[in-house]
Design a protein around this nucleic acid. Structure first.
Length: 545
RNA sequence: UGUCCUAUAGUGUAACUGGCAACACGUCUGAUUUUGGUUCAGAAGAGUCUAGGUUCGAGCCCUAGUAGGACAACCA
């Protein structure tokens, strides 16, 4: 479900289409293959692919691979997998590196027009002569070399006659421009480095500003959508397209989405991985697409989340609760119901025979009757949740307590007749009687609890996840953001009891464990051991206590 | 002592210039319920950063303030 009110980009596009500025639109998702995609990228993916779909246009996937030092094929693959998993298919797949020859030609054009020059200044000298926000920069002594000399020097750069950093190609714009990016920005730098696709063919690589807009233009992208940080690049984006006289793509910016209680920058996510605060990029606590997938998030829930948080140009911090709500919303209708006891205590039904089980029937999903029922073994001893019994229950507690009645889901109504404690004062066993049909008519039960039959129970490890950080915005705290990592973000239950049919669950399968939440089978599971991740808990109106 | 962006309930987004600012999440009631889930009914919660201006009428337009954010990588 999406698309109620238009966002500002849709307004712009509709206007363009109405005015006939474009017959159809072309967008693109342009990740740099230097890391895994996160929920922020998912928003960009939904935006770009969504806009193309909504207006009958096309959307390409383009890897912005102009920095050989940072990029790897591993990332190219994971990104494609994530985009597809989210439910999108690109029209064409491109790599900026495919345009290196064309880009080189553009640079030569610019030199010939007297709009670019080879500079011998070092990185430090260029930074020093750039000026700052208050003072204009100083022109390089090499700024006015002849076109012929620039052409020769640039050819030499390509030919590998210089060391890294010895020379760069710069645009000749205005060293006193109020926008720092317009003060003779770098176009090409020398890097004798192996590129993941072009190998050792090149030793000069275009900078982002001399690659991104040009690639958009080559692909005839009509609406080049990026995040707000690039807004200062737009004048340069336009300047280059204008001087190069190539197809005029246009850039539009929106504010990146921030999520509560997590971090989103690749740098910080990388730190969490490298310093082992999480198990990897796909740790279920990570806001990465792969992490969310492993956590049990569905593509639909993520698309719904992105649609419901909308898009704008202002700073934002989206409530994690919205993401969770989208997941519950999806899984409530799709996930099969099962019973699992996470913190077990034994309940003995004293008026039932020892050593024999009967089969009771329970619905697989009340929201989806066509999923039918399943049979569950039930007998004299069952595991119930420790929190579902209280020795001295408060008034509004609907569960079990001395002499109280409660319904065992799908099995009948029981009355508690006693309990036994161990030396430490912990409840060890609870005794009760199953009510007869006549007795049932006389009582009113307020609570229903889940259970797992002791003699047929299977076991599983369950991993309970919570927010990764203890503060809403760890990136903005003073000091190291890692000081705010939630020590309880992962709580492992080594032995939980689950109903027997769960033994056949496959990695990735999601279930609703009655009254406990949604859980999915983790990839760490083996033949001998099932492991479930808690994707999200159920809403709980009792938490007030 | 620069340039640019932004400013609407707790959060995120809406609102064709004109009937008491809408939706979602969250919160709170109540009903239903063999999940304290779901569903259903309802409620509270902002008067749109401030000050002027234009207008019969302004979150919406203009001006000026104020506040927050971004920008000075041979990263993208």
């Amino acid at each position: 479900m999406e698309g109620q009110a238009n966002n500002f980009l849709e307004d712009i596009i509709e206007k363009h289409l109405e005015e006939g500025k474009y017959d159809s639109i072309q967008t693109r998702f342009p990740p740099e293959p230097n890391g895994y995609l996160h929920i922020g990228h998912a928003a960009s993916i939904c935006l770009n692919f969504g806009l193309a779909k909504k207006y009958g246009g096309k959307c390409n996937l383009r890897f912005d691979d102009t920095n050989p030092l940072a990029e790897e094929t591993e990332y190219v693959e994971s990104i494609q997998e994530d985009v597809k998993w989210l439910g999108f298919q690109w029209d064409q797949l491109f790599f900026t590196s495919d345009y290196f020859e064309t880009l080189y030609g553009y640079a030569v054009d610019l030199i010939k027009k007297g709009l670019a020059y080879v500079d011998d200044l070092s990185a430090e000298e260029i930074a020093a002569t750039k000026g700052n926000m208050e003072k204009p920069g100083v022109e390089s002594p090499h700024r006015n070399r002849s076109i012929e000399e620039n052409l020769q020097l640039f050819a030499n750069m390509r030919a590998g006659k210089y060391q890294d950093g010895e020379k760069v190609l710069r645009a000749k714009i205005d060293m006193s421009h109020p926008n720092l990016l317009m003060r003779d920005p770098l176009l090409y730098r020398i890097k004798h480095a192996h590129h993941h696709r072009t190998g050792d063919k090149w030793c000069i690589y275009p900078m982002y500003d001399f690659a991104h807009g040009q690639s958009d233009s080559i692909e005839k992208v009509t609406h080049s959508i990026c995040t707000l940080e690039f807004i200062h690049h737009r004048p340069l984006y336009d300047w280059l397209i204008d001087k190069l006289e190539i197809y005029p793509s246009h850039q539009y910016e929106f504010a990146r989405r921030n999520l509560d209680y997590t971090v989103m920058s690749k740098r910080r996510l990388l730190q969490l991985v490298n310093e082992k605060h999480v198990s990897g990029w796909d740790d279920p606590r990570m806001p990465t697409v792969s992490g969310l997938r492993r956590r049990g998030y569905t593509p639909k829930s993520i698309r719904d989340f992105v649609a419901s948080m909308g898009i704008s140009k202002r700073e934002n911090s989206v409530d994690m609760g919205l993401l969770e709500s989208c997941l519950r919303n999806d899984l409530n209708k799709e996930a099969l119901r099962r019973m699992a006891v996470l913190d077990p205590v034994k309940l003995i039904i004293t008026n039932l025979p020892d050593g024999q089980n009967e089969m009771v029937s329970s619905e697989n999903n009340p929201e989806k009757p066509e999923t039918g029922d399943r049979k569950i073994p039930f007998g004299r001893e069952v595991w119930i949740e420790r929190e579902d019994f209280m020795e001295e229950p408060p008034k509004k507690y609907f569960r079990l307590g001395p002499d109280r009645v409660v319904r065992l889901k799908s099995a009948g109504i029981i009355r508690c007749t006693g309990f036994k404690k161990d030396e430490k004062g912990e409840i060890e066993e609870i005794y009760c009687e199953l009510l007869t049909d006549e007795q049932v008519g006389e009582v009113k039960v307020k609570g229903t609890i889940h259970w797992v039959n002791v003699s047929t129970a299977k076991t599983a490890e369950i991993r309970l996840y919570d927010r990764l950080f203890t503060v809403a915005d760890p990136a903005k705290q003073e000091g190291d953001f890692k000081e705010y990592i939630n020590p309880d973000s992962l709580v492992t239950i080594h032995t939980a009891y689950i109903e027997p049919c769960l033994a056949e669950a496959q990695v990735g399968d999601s279930f609703q464990f009655l009254r406990k939440g949604y859980f999915c089978v983790d990839k760490d599971s083996s033949e001998k051991k099932l492991i479930f991740n808690r994707s999200v808990g159920l809403k709980d109106a009792w938490v007030n206590k």
